[in-house]
Computed example of a mutant assay.
Amino acid sequence: MKKPYLKQFPDESGFFGKFGGSFVPEEVKKAMQEINEAYDLIAQNSDFIAELRKIRKHFQGRPTPIYFAHNLTKKYGGAGIYFKREDLNHTGAHKLNHCMGEGLLAKFMGKKKLIAETGAGQHGVALATAAAYFGLECEIHMGEIDIQKEYPNVVRMKILGAKVVPVSFGAKTLKEAVDSAFESYMSDLENSMYAIGSVVGPHPFPRMVRDFQAIVGIESKEQFLEMTGELPDIVTACVGGGSNALGIFSGFIDDSVELVGVEPLGRGSEYGNHASSLSYGEEGIMHGFNSIMLKDSSGNPASVYSVASGLDYPSVGPEHAYLHSIGRTKVECISDNEAISAFFELSKEEGIIPAIESSHAVAYALKIAKDLKGKKILVNLSGRGDKDIDFIVNTYGYSL
C-alpha cells in the first residue's frame, strides 16, 4: 500500500523534493541535528504524546469548533462558507499548537531558554505563554514597525514574562526579526532553543511545526464529516510562512479536496508592494532552507510589504513550494483592501473579528462563493483580530 503523504515527506535530510534541507553553519547544523534526534525520540514516545494531548485539551481548549457562517452564506448566495475557529484557541491563534510542542521538546532537552522572532506578535505571545507554562526564559525579537502596529501583543508578551527585543535595522519587520533572533540563538546554542514560528527554517523545523499544526487538519476532517456527511470541496488558508495553511491542509492532502493558499498582494504586484512569494518568486536559499523567495536585482531577499504583519516575509515554507510545484495546491492573491473589507464583513455579518492575516483567506472565500452554488468552502480562521483593532481604527476608522 502507498504510504500516506505525511509519512513520505520530508526525506531524512529534510527535503520536500528539491525544497527544504539545512543550509546553516556547521555549529548550527550540529544543534539542528540534536533537535531532530530529540524530536524523533519523543514523537514516538507515548508519554510525550499523552502530555501534549492533555495540554491541548485542558490548557489550549482544543478541539476548536467548525462554524457554519449562515449570514455570509445567505448574503453571497453561493457556496456554503465554514470557518475552522482557530481564533478560539488559547492566546487567540493557531500558533500555540506548535509553541506548546516546542516548549515541551525544549524541556525534554534540558534547555533553559526559548528564543524566537514574531511578526504580528501571535507567535511571540504563544511562545511566551509556553515558556511561562514550562518555566523557561523567553526572548522575542520583533521589528520596530511591527511593534508599533501590533502593540497590544507586545504588552501581552511582556506581561507573560518575555523579553521583547526591538529590531531596528533593515525594513524593521519579520525578516529582520528572524535575522536578529538567529544571531542571539547562535550566541548560546547550549542553553537555548530557537523556536521557529512557522514551517520555515532549516530541517527539522518545517516538518516539526507542520506535525504540531496537523491537529487542525485532523480535527477539521472529523468535524466536517460529522457536520455535513462529506468533505469540503475547497479548503483555504492564508500563507506567509505557511504554518496555519499546512496545518489544515494536512488533514485533506490525500483526499480529492482543492487546497488553496492565499498570499498577500499588498498594494499591488509591483516590486516592494507585496509579499506573494509563490506567485512572483523564484528558487533561492534564505534562513537555512531552499524554497521559493522574492529577490531583488542582486539576488538577495527582496523588500516586501503586507498590511498583515504576519504575512510580510520574502519566502515561504519549503513544503508549500513543493506542493505548489507538483500541482497539489493552488495559490491565489488578495490585496490589502480586499482583506480589510473582509475583516469588516466578517465582523459585522457574523460577530467574529478576525486577524488581518486570516482576513486574506476570508476575502478569497467571499470572492469565489457566489459562483460555487452547492459547494462547501472551509476557511482556516487562523487568528482573532484583537491585536489589530487599534491599527485598523487608526488607519481605516470603523468601516471602509
Rank of each mutant, 00 (worst) to 15 (best):
G20K: 00
G20R: 01
G20S: 03
G20C: 08
G21W: 02
G21K: 02
G21C: 09
S22N: 01
S22H: 01
S22E: 03
V24I: 09
V24H: 04
E26N: 06
E26L: 05
E27P: 04
E27Y: 01
E27F: 01
V28L: 05
V28S: 05
V28C: 04
K29S: 14
K29P: 00
K29F: 13
K30V: 12
A31H: 06
A31T: 06
A31L: 07
M32Q: 14
M32N: 12
Q33W: 02
Q33H: 03
E34R: 03
I35M: 05
I35N: 08
I35P: 04
I35C: 10
I35S: 10
N36Q: 14
N36K: 13
E37M: 12
E37H: 11
A38L: 15
A38V: 04
Y39R: 10
Y39L: 07
D40T: 08
D40Q: 09
D40G: 09
L41Q: 06
L41G: 00
I42C: 06
I42T: 05
I42V: 15
I42A: 07
A43H: 12
A43W: 14
A43E: 13
A43I: 05
Q44R: 13
Q44F: 10
Q44S: 14
N45H: 12
N45P: 01
S46K: 04
D47K: 09
F48K: 00
F48H: 12
F48D: 02
F48Q: 01
I49E: 14
I49H: 11
I49K: 15
A50I: 01
A50K: 06
E51Y: 00
E51S: 09
L52Y: 11
L52F: 13
R53N: 02
K54M: 01
K54H: 07
K54N: 10
I55K: 02
I55Q: 00
R56Q: 11
R56F: 03
K57M: 02
K57V: 11
H58Y: 01
H58P: 00
H58M: 06
H58S: 06
F59R: 02
Q60L: 11
R62I: 08
R62G: 05
R62T: 02
P63L: 11
P63N: 08
P63H: 12
T64M: 01
T64W: 10
P65Q: 07
P65R: 03
I66C: 10
I66V: 14
Y67K: 02
Y67Q: 13
Y67V: 15
Y67D: 03
Y67L: 08
F68T: 15
F68S: 14
A69T: 09
A69W: 04
N71M: 08
N71S: 14
L72K: 07
T73N: 10
K74G: 07
K74F: 13
K74I: 09
K75M: 12
K75D: 07
Y76N: 12
G77A: 12
G78K: 13
G78R: 05
A79W: 10
A79T: 13
G80K: 10
G80Q: 13
I81W: 03
I81D: 01
Y82A: 15
Y82N: 11
F83C: 09
F83L: 14
F83A: 06
K84S: 05
K84A: 05
K84I: 05
K84H: 09
K84W: 08
K84T: 08
R85G: 13
R85N: 14
R85E: 09
R85Q: 15
R85S: 07
R85L: 15
